[in-house]
């Protein structure tokens, strides 16, 4: 599961939708095994578009869960999306490594509201629920 996906996933328990704690899920850094796939190509224009969808505070939280506290406190902004300068490219390259190339291969994530644990196995998160939570 790519790092970017952590920014899209909340708890599947419907009752948690009324809480603000159902997103992002919290990741157990000691149990998460990360991998970087350097073969995934860098596409800056594409990444700039996708960044519009990203909630930066959740990126910071999950990165911290996984032991990375060196991210800028605010979401990078790009003056002119149609002509990215060198500084923009450097930032985007870092973001590419973090959001697209890094994935959680094995691990656990927990809802901060209901405490339910979800597993990631072979890079695929399992968001199914037992009947008492469904």
């Amino acid at each position: 599961m790519k790092f970017l996906t952590t920014n899209f996933l909340k708890c599947s328990v419907q009752a948690c939708d009324t809480s603000n704690d159902n997103f992002p899920l919290s990741y157990d850094g000691s149990k998460c095994q990360l991998e970087q796939d350097e073969s995934i190509e860098f596409n800056p224009e594409f990444l700039v578009n996708i960044l519009d969808r990203v909630e930066w505070s959740a990126i910071l939280q999950v990165a911290a869960d996984l032991g990375n506290t060196s991210l800028p406190p605010n979401k990078p902004i790009f003056e002119d999306k149609n002509s990215l300068n060198e500084d923009d490219m450097a930032i985007l390259r870092d973001l590419h490594i973090l959001l697209i190339q890094t994935s959680i291969v094995e691990g656990e994530m927990k809802c901060k509201n209901c405490g339910h644990t979800y597993y990631i196995k072979n890079s695929i998160p399992n968001l199914l629920l037992p009947p008492h939570l469904a």
Binding site: M1, T5, K10, S12, I124, P125, N126, L128, L129, A134
Partner: peptide, 12 residues
């Protein structure tokens, strides 16, 4: 991006 094991009606 990813594929998730998930029930569409219990969407995450």
């Amino acid at each position: 991006l990813d594929v998730l094991t998930m029930d569409f009606t219990h969407n995450a």
